[in-house]
Design a protein around this nucleic acid. Sequence first.
DNA 1: GCTTGCGTAACTATCTCAGTTACTGGAGAC
DNA 2: GTCTCCAGTAACTGAGATAGTTACGCAAGC
Lengths: 135, 135
Amino acid sequence: MKRNSRLSLALHTLGHMAGTPDRVRKSADIAAHAGTNPVVVRRVLGSLREAGLLLSESGHSGGWRLARPPEEITLADVYIALDERLVAQDGDATPHDCAVAHALHGRVSSLMEELERTLVRKLSETTIVDLQEQT
Amino acid sequence: MKRNSRLSLALHTLGHMAGTPDRVRKSADIAAHAGTNPVVVRRVLGSLREAGLLLSESGHSGGWRLARPPEEITLADVYIALDERLVAQDGDATPHDCAVAHALHGRVSSLMEELERTLVRKLSETTIVDLQEQT
DNA sequence: GCTTGCGTAACTATCTCAGTTACTGGAGAC
DNA sequence: GTCTCCAGTAACTGAGATAGTTACGCAAGC
C-alpha cells in the first residue's frame, strides 16, 4: 500500500460493511482483502471504534462490525475520526518578524482552512451506503 | 525548515522581490533570511526560472531578480511552477476489481480534483504584490 | 587569473508511515 | 479448566520523501 492508505482502507472496509451490516469481520480477512496487514487494520479501525463508528469483540466469533446504521455514517465522520488532513496546512508557523511572511501566512493558511472546511462539508454529503452504487 | 517549505520559501522570496523589483539578490542572502541553505534556494528558485518567473545571473553582481512585473505574477503561477499538490490526490489507483473500491475512488478523486482546481483559482486571484500589505 | 555567484551532482540526516513481529488478555468452544 | 481464536499494543524495520550539506564546475566581472 502507499500513501494516504489509512483513509482508503477505512472507507473501503466500511463500504463493504455497509453492504452486509450484520456480518462480523476479522481483521485478518479485512487485511487480506485490502492487501495489507491485520495489525494495520486494527490500528486504523481502532480509531474508528474510538470515534464510535465501529465495535470490536475478542474471542471466537469476534471481529468488527458497525456501531450504528450505515446510512448514519458519512465519509466526513471517517475522515474526522482518522484525523486526516488531505488539505495541507501552512506549516510555516515560525514566528518570523517579517511582514511578508506574515501576510503570506495569513493569506495561505486562511485559504487552506477554507478548503478543508469545504472538503469536510462535501464528504458529509455521502454516506458509506452510497459506496455500493456505481457513480 | 519543515514540510511544504518549498512553496513557502518561493512565495516569501518573491514577496520581497515584489517590494524592490530592481534589486538583485544572491542565493546566500535569500537563504540567510529564510533560515535555510543557498543550494536549497537555488533549487527552488531554479524551478521558477524554468517557468519564466525569475532570471538568474552568474558572477560579480549576479543573483536573482523577477523576469516580469510583480503585478503579473500570481501565487498560482508559483504554485504551478513548483508542481506542488497541497491537496492530496487519491493515491489508490490500484486496479482493484472491487465495486466498492471503484465507487470510492471515483467519488473521492473527483472531489479532490475539484478542490485542487478551486485552490489554483483562488491562488490566481492574488499577486505577489499583495504580499506586501497586511490582510 | 582571481573572486564571486549560479548549476548540479552526490551524499547525509530526518521524518513519516506502512509493514512486521511478538506478546498480552479476553471470550467462547470443548 | 484449558485450548483456540481474535483484538490490543508495543517495539522494531524498511521504504520513500525531502531538506540540508559538501564539493566541484562554469560563467561573468574586476
